[in-house]
Amino acid sequence: MKLEITGFSAGYNKKPIVTDISFMLQPKTLTALLGPNGCGKTTLFKGLCHLIPSSGSCILTSDDGGAPYNLMQLNNRKLAQHISYIPQKSSISASMPVLEAVLMGFQPFLPLLSRTGKFHRVAAFSALETVGMQDFAAHDFCTLSEGQKQLCILARTLVQNTDILLLDEPDSALDYPNRNKILNILRKIVYDNNKAGLLILHDPCTALNHCAQLLLMKEGRLIGSVHPDQDSETVLSEALSQLYGPVQVFRQHNRFFLYPL
């Protein structure tokens, strides 16, 4: 499984906000998308999901042995079977049980006239177990904390079972211990299921420690990419300094640390 994006542009009202983006996502890994506020990270995600006008090439080679999918030609429903999008905050506005919210993940596979059944409920429950929220299955979704909601939406994404996961700041609403927890869960999910995850993160340290590839974005373009397990500390420091000002990356006890100079 791999995803190849070439010359991708997206934007509102015919004016592209992100231009000429090219990168690759490898299976079993998380990739981080780093960049200052307003540089177009969320716009890129929305473009990939066909929520805003976009152009370019987006080829997904799946493990099912079939022909590669040209994602730009798929309609929203078919696209949702291959790419799932987790926004920063869930927009569910009506009270409903958590399990019902998780069941929404099956929608890309259900025609308009059909409903979820017993099989789906069982799968949804086991997705909740993977994220540790099984005790909340009957609780009202709207009464959960932001972090708990994030975990439930992650369960929904698991149920959607797509090759590619796009996560918009999955850790920003979480408290300190839960940040690590959700990233570890994500790493395990993509590794065990041969998926690829692209995460918008704000903390470069988190990115260095959990992601196999860091994509650096500035003003709508990709200015570089680094691989923490292959590149030296100098290369990493130089690359990240382009985004964050002079910073130093160093490695100790097999973990990365970063501080501003």
Partner: peptide, 24 residues
């Protein structure tokens, strides 16, 4: 009934789930 609840999501989130929001 289940489809009605899908419309409690924002248009974006619903579309990202492949829901034909306008039609529904």
């Amino acid at each position: 009934c289940q489809k009605i609840l899908l419309l409690s999501l924002s248009d974006e989130e619903a579309r990202a789930l492949g829901v034909p929001v306008t039609l529904l």
